[in-house]
Design a protein around this nucleic acid. Structure first.
Lengths: 209, 209
DNA sequence: CTAACGTTTGTCCAATTGGTCAAAAAAATG
DNA sequence: CATTTTTTTGACCAATTGGACAAACGTTAG
């Protein structure tokens, strides 16, 4: 029996894999896993299908690699949520960071949404592991703030969900948002408007006074 | 040239079309348009593929029919938002109704989310038309509330978006929500917890006092 | 230069899939 | 019951798609 060679990567391999992953992100986020074809991805990466399959064994391997990277980036803003400083401004800046991600990485957001929508068939382990652990940890931080009376007493998990939902909405439902806002209000400023609105709502609510 | 006969529907036609649409909703909402196959739908409806294609000319025709019906049901809660009574409780019950829809019609929610995620290739006209018109109209109602000082002055469009996002999240990201909440808190009561949380946040925000 | 290794391509294949069609089977109609 | 119309099916087809493979082409180290 031959031992598996770890076989380190060539310069070309590193570069081409990166090219493929970027093209794949584009295609997968637009058409979903089943809707995307290897040909489209290869095309986007400027190479032939067999050539692409030289760098990744299968369509699924590309997708998995992509999802693994994604999750880390995706959870970064939450990871930064810290117990130092004022809770309200911590949450405020979490919302802002999350909204910036929706603006700057909409493809990642849609890729993730697509995967969860279909029941997370390929990333369930990461949801149960990394993601849940982090959320549990941060929910505990938020609970601490509540116990010390610095924010109102409510459910920290649903708070996190609602921040995710509202911010990611601007990436995932982008077409709808832009269509409804129309050409006048649906330009790049929609993210600033959204930021203003969300910070206001989460902090003070709708009730006057 | 023959005139197109309007040719009204048989009892069997009505029944079978209904069966197909229900099966299609199940499959489409789970796999997206491209991920779903006619065979799966036919199977779910308990008939053969050619038989299904006797009732609907193509896969796309099923999808379009489904989306048209969907939108009406989907917008019903917003249509009910009325200028009578207290604005805060109007919005509160809008949130509650929307959350009930996410709970009772998750397939519809996911079907819609899938379509928008991919850029609304098949329902753009309805978004630009029916949906936008309704949102404009209701945003005006909400603006009125703001002008009269009964709720704080903010962006009515982003308010509607944030209600959509937070409520639909519980249908679209169901797997994630249930996984993060775990078996203890992720049962049916998650909708009540969510309702309590959302009403609280939208009305009073996080700031104490 | 040349052997060894890495990269790329053209060709091919089997499975899946959307859709057609003619003929059989069932219902409905008179 | 006989005829017409509707419904159902089995067989078929062409296009798409994920992936295999061997041969050709490049690159690089000795």
């Amino acid at each position: 029996m031959e031992a598996e060679k770890p076989r380190r990567r060539t310069r070309i391999q590193t570069e081409k894999r990166e090219l493929i992953l970027d093209a794949a992100l584009e295609i997968f986020s637009q058409h979903g896993f089943r809707g995307a074809t290897i040909d489209q991805i290869a095309d986007g990466a400027g190479m032939s299908k067999p050539n692409l399959l030289y760098y990744f064994r299968s369509k699924e391997e590309i997708h998995i690699t992509l999802m693994q990277r994604l999750l880390t980036t995706w959870l970064a803003p939450l990871r930064e949520l810290d117990d130092v400083g004022d809770p309200i401004s911590e949450l405020r800046s979490y919302i802002r960071r999350k909204l910036e991600m929706a603006r700057d990485y909409p493809r990642e957001s849609r890729l993730f949404a697509n995967e969860i929508l279909q029941g997370a068939p390929r990333i369930m382990p990461m949801i149960e592991g990394e993601l849940k652990t982090l959320v549990d940890e941060k929910a505990e931080v938020i609970s601490g703030w509540m116990r010390s009376g610095r924010i109102i007493h409510t459910d920290p998990y649903h708070l996190i969900f609602s921040i995710w939902a509202t911010t990611q909405h601007y990436a995932d439902f982008d077409v709808q948002v832009r269509t409804v806002l129309g050409p006048l209000r649906g330009g790049e400023e929609r993210f600033e408007d959204a930021a203003r609105f969300l910070e206001q709502i989460f902090v003070d609510g709708l009730q006057p006074d």
